[in-house]
């Protein structure tokens, strides 16, 4: 068992390295920071350009650059941005912002998604089921930025009807906010609601669809009947035997759901001006900054790695049939 999980972990680490290397290579090949520099008016002197090229290690072949960069990463140094600032300076704060959004989004998303899926399945073909189905399809087929914009508009009209700005949707905190510790927390919460909701909606839609079909499979199953036949009430049998078994396929979905989350997160951060990792990635690409791009990719790869591995652990914990 432990051996199995360890082997999987090694697999994931290799995959994360490969993904980062590819992103690094792609960025190095396509980005042309020197060209940007040269096009300045008036063009900077040749010595400056050479110095920059050396700073950015552009005089080395790409694999060597990657090794140099990775060597730094292992020691906790992610290199410099184009603007010559150490990446580590921003990394911690930005990662914190993103993780807050992601973790809250995924926890709420899975919990609500599973619940909605179960209710949908139990009340198949009733109004609540149709409602959940339509909701999921609409959400899943709408691009994140549209959802975000709609939520913004909705929040605005709520604010208007209340007559004060309860729901805030620009930035993470009110700039220059000063107040007590409690007031600061409330301020953060006010900023958090709409962006988190954006993420949660698509997660709920995604998980509820799968949970519904997994639960439907289980609803017709013989073992659920056996559980009732031995004296469990329907409700108890549904939760203790039905839901427990229907959760197994969810574990595998977890790893994929994370990808969806990151894509959604990137847009969400931008739209709500949260300066997290997603926002940074876009900045990095705009500035043709290889180190930022590679760092964010590595971050995402590590997140996917952890979620994938968690999914394995979860799967093994949920399903005795694969415990080896």
């Amino acid at each position: 068992m432990t051996g199995f999980l360890l082997r999987r972990l090694v697999n994931y680490v290799v995959l994360a390295l490969v993904a980062t290397f590819l992103a690094f290579t792609l960025a190095s090949v396509t980005f042309d920071p020197i060209g940007v520099l040269q096009q300045r008016n008036p063009p900077p002197p040749a010595a400056t350009i050479d110095a920059k090229r050396h700073d950015l290690h552009l005089d080395q072949p790409i694999p060597e650059r990657f090794v140099t960069w990775m060597g730094g990463v292992v020691k906790g140094d992610f290199g410099q941005t184009i603007a010559n600032r150490p990446i580590t300076e921003e990394l911690g704060r930005r990662a914190g912002v993103s993780l807050r959004l992601f973790l809250l989004g995924i926890t709420l998303g899975i919990t609500l998604g599973v619940l909605l899926g179960v209710i949908s399945a139990i009340r198949q073909y009733k109004f609540s089921d149709y409602f959940a189905t339509i909701f999921s399809f609409v959400v899943l087929s709408t691009p994140v930025f549209v959802i975000a914009t709609l939520l913004k508009t909705g929040a605005q009209s709520i604010n208007n009807s209340i007559g004060s700005n309860v729901l805030l949707f620009t930035g993470e905190t009110t700039p220059g906010f000063s107040g007590s510790w409690g007031a600061a927390l409330v301020d953060r919460l006010q900023h958090m609601i709409v962006p988190t909701l954006t993420i949660v909606l698509s997660q709920v839609a995604y998980y509820s669809r799968y949970q519904r079909s997994a639960m439907l499979d289980v609803l017709g199953s013989d073992f659920l009947r056996t559980a009732q036949a031995k004296g469990l009430t329907r409700r108890k049998a549904l939760f203790k035997h039905g839901l427990r078994t229907a959760l197994i396929p969810m574990a595998t979905l977890f790893a994929f759901g994370f990808g969806l989350l990151i894509v959604g997160g990137t847009f969400t951060e931008r739209i709500f001006s949260w300066f997290g990792m997603g926002d940074w990635l876009i900045t990095g690409i705009q500035n043709q900054d290889t180190n930022i791009t590679a760092t964010v990719t590595l971050f995402i790869a590590v997140c996917v790695l952890v979620s994938g591995w968690l999914a394995d652990v979860l799967y093994a914990a949920l399903d005795p049939r694969i415990r080896i």
Partner: peptide
């Protein structure tokens, strides 16, 4: 549910799926 399993019990056809796998 107070009667099922205590006073009346049932054996179903397909033993392969009659028990909860987990």
């Amino acid at each position: 549910s107070k009667i099922r399993g205590r006073k009346i019990s049932m054996v179903f056809q397909d033993p392969l799926s009659a028990l909860t796998p987990v």
